[in-house]
């Protein structure tokens, strides 16, 4: 009796097993992708169903590009991305270096580190909103007790403070991810390099710049790409904290496009704007990848 008879090839069998997942991916990713491309070239005329959907060419793209509010939201997004990416990389690196040392309760600290990253973004926003409440918030109470301020500061109603507070909250919630990746990279550095450097009389600072940092280059570039994309996609945290206010001072491009699509029912304009932003992110990623090639990092 031949037990090795095959009913079908392994490839076909694998395809059958994968079919439900593939269908799900096509349905949940490919269809919305294609539909949003379609949307960016049409006007659904929602409040005028008699006209119906009309092909408008590149008008939706042009409308966005000629709208100063869109450019303003892009500017805020760039500022937000720049500060929070750099900030989270610096704080994350510092936390990773700290937790890479043999300190007491290191395991506990490493676990605690993950908490801000594990909390859903809307909850993070609500926590920060409570902390920053002008009359009942703990930050004002703390600063008042310490004698640093005499009057409550309206953190989220002030044009400048609101943006600063968004930067801080975004850095707070994103640095654990950075720290985690840096921590993994730090553990791959051979210890004998540090020992040799020490024998040669190198200070800790020199060892950091000449041994640690070169080893972290690849991780840094990967983090730059991931965090930049993340910053451009930011929505939940800002929506929960300020909803883009006061006025439009914290309205990043994600919020602007959400408002266009889901509040004003201008789905065409919103889809076109999203593709402009996608293009910008792709350009940034391209620059990062070029940088990686220049520095021969893989």
């Amino acid at each position: 009796m031949n037990h090795n008879t095959k009913i079908m090839s392994e490839g076909r069998f694998a395809l059958i097993l994968l079919a439900p997942t593939l269908l799900l991916i096509v349905g949940l990713l490919l269809y919305p992708l294609l539909y949003s491309i379609y949307l960016s070239f049409v006007d659904l005329n929602i409040t005028n169903p008699a006209i119906g959907t009309k092909f408008v060419g590149f008008r939706n793209f042009m409308d966005n590009l000629s709208d100063p509010v869109f450019w303003n939201s892009l500017k805020i997004t760039f500022n937000f991305a720049f500060v929070t990416v750099i900030g989270s990389l610096l704080v994350g690196l510092f936390a990773a270096l700290l937790l890479n040392n043999k300190i007491r309760a290191r395991g506990l600290f490493r676990t605690l580190l993950l908490i801000p990253w594990a909390i859903p973004l809307v909850i993070v926003g609500m926590i920060w909103k409570l902390i920053l409440h002008p009359n009942y918030g703990s930050l004002n109470a703390l600063l008042m007790k310490a004698g640093i301020i005499q009057h409550n500061i309206v953190w989220l109603s002030d044009a400048n403070w609101s943006l600063v507070m968004l930067f801080i909250s975004e850095i707070w919630r994103s640095f654990p991810f950075v720290a985690l990746l840096y921590l993994a990279a730090l553990q791959t550095i051979p210890q004998d390099l540090f020992e040799a450097a020490s024998v040669d009389g190198a200070t800790k600072r020199k060892a950091f710049w000449h041994i640690t940092m070169p080893y972290l280059q690849a991780t840094t570039l990967v983090l730059l790409i991931l965090r930049t994309i993340d910053a451009f996609r930011s929505f939940d945290l800002i929506f929960a904290m300020t909803k883009g206010g006061p006025a439009n001072k914290t309205e990043i491009v994600g919020l602007y496009l959400y408002k266009q699509g889901f509040t004003f029912a201008n789905f065409g304009g919103s889809a076109a704007g999203s593709y402009i932003v996608t293009l910008l992110i792709l350009v940034l990623v391209f620059i990062y990848i070029k940088l990686m090639k220049v520095h021969n990092i893989s």
Partner: peptide
């Protein structure tokens, strides 16, 4: 008005700009 939502969002920002002294 069918465009009330859009007007309201725009007007909210203008009023807030005054209240922010900008």
């Amino acid at each position: 008005l069918p465009w009330y939502q859009e007007w309201s969002a725009m007007m909210q920002d203008r009023i807030q700009m005054v209240l922010l002294k900008s």
